[in-house]
Each structure stands twice: as C-alpha cells, then as structure tokens.
C-alpha cells in the first residue's frame, strides 16, 4: 500500500512539471491548445485502462443523475478549471502555481457544509487557517 501511495504522490507531483515543460516548449501558443491535447490524451488513456481492467460496459451502470453531476464537474472543474490552471502555469512558476491550486480541498470542505450538510470541526478551522496563510505567502512570493 505504501508503494502505491508513494507512486501516487510522485506521479501527481511530476504531472505539474511536465505541464510546465510542455507549455514552455510552445511559448507563442495559447494555453487552451495544450489543455485540449492533454485532456484528450488523458481521456484516451483512461478509456483504455477502463476497458482493459473492467469493461467499457461499466459506463452503462452509471446512473443518469450521476452523469449530470459528472457533466457539471467535468465542464467546470476539469474543463474551465484546467484552462485557468494551464494559463497560470504558462505565465507563472510551476512551483508556486501547483502549491496554490492544491489548496482547493479547503474550498470543497467549506462548500460541503451548506451543500452536503457536513459538520464544521476544529481541524477544518485550523487546516483552513494554515492553507489560507500559505496561499497568501505564495501569492506575494515574487515573480510568477
């Protein structure tokens, strides 16, 4: 299990580095073109993985309501959010942008209070203060 966790952490960490290398190799092009290529390749790879490990028929088992929720998440989260992220990476330092964007679970936890009726707890308060403090420091940390 520990090896899988390590591979996950390193893989996600390296993903941002390759995003930056890709964008640096196309300096005069809009970030949107990189998002189109990158997400399409990810979809193809995930589709292949799903078909190899299970079956594409698994998609038929996803209920209609879940398709609606996933459509909203995909369009706004991965789509619009992805374009904004690639724009920030193209014009900034990856070491700052990745850390900054990684703070999104804080927002999720607080949106979960009214929308999913989850409780507000002390760890959420302390964790949020740390994340917000870190994000403020990163936002004033200089160029990029």
């Amino acid at each position: 299990m520990l090896i899988a966790v390590l591979i996950t952490t390193v893989s996600w960490g390296l993903g941002g580095v390759f995003d930056k290398l890709g964008l640096d190799s196309m300096p005069d092009m809009p970030a949107t073109s990189a998002v189109v290529v990158r997400q399409t390749m990810a979809l193809v790879a995930l589709g292949i993985w799903l078909s190899v490990t299970m079956s594409l028929k698994e998609l038929r088992r996803v209920p209609a309501l879940a398709w609606v929720y996933l459509a909203i998440s995909g369009i706004f989260g991965v789509g619009i959010g992805g374009i904004a992220y690639f724009y920030a990476v193209q014009h900034g330092e990856i070491s700052t942008v990745v850390v900054f964007c990684s703070g999104y679970p804080m927002l999720t936890l607080f949106l979960a209070v009214p929308f999913l009726r989850e409780a507000v707890t002390w760890p959420k308060g302390v964790g949020t203060l740390l994340v917000v403090g870190g994000l403020v420091l990163l936002s004033v940390s200089g160029a990029g």
Partner: peptide, 21 residues
C-alpha cells in the same frame, strides 16, 4: 494574471468536487 488563473482553477476544482461527491 497568474493569481487570477490560479484562483479560478482552485475555485473550479473545489466546487467541482462537490458534484463529484
């Protein structure tokens, strides 16, 4: 501009996770 892009990305990912759940 970088801060705006990063904030939009963070807001989009944070909100989308609610719909994932």
């Amino acid at each position: 501009y970088v801060l705006a892009g990063a904030l939009i990305a963070m807001a989009a990912w944070g909100s989308a996770a609610i719909f994932d759940k």
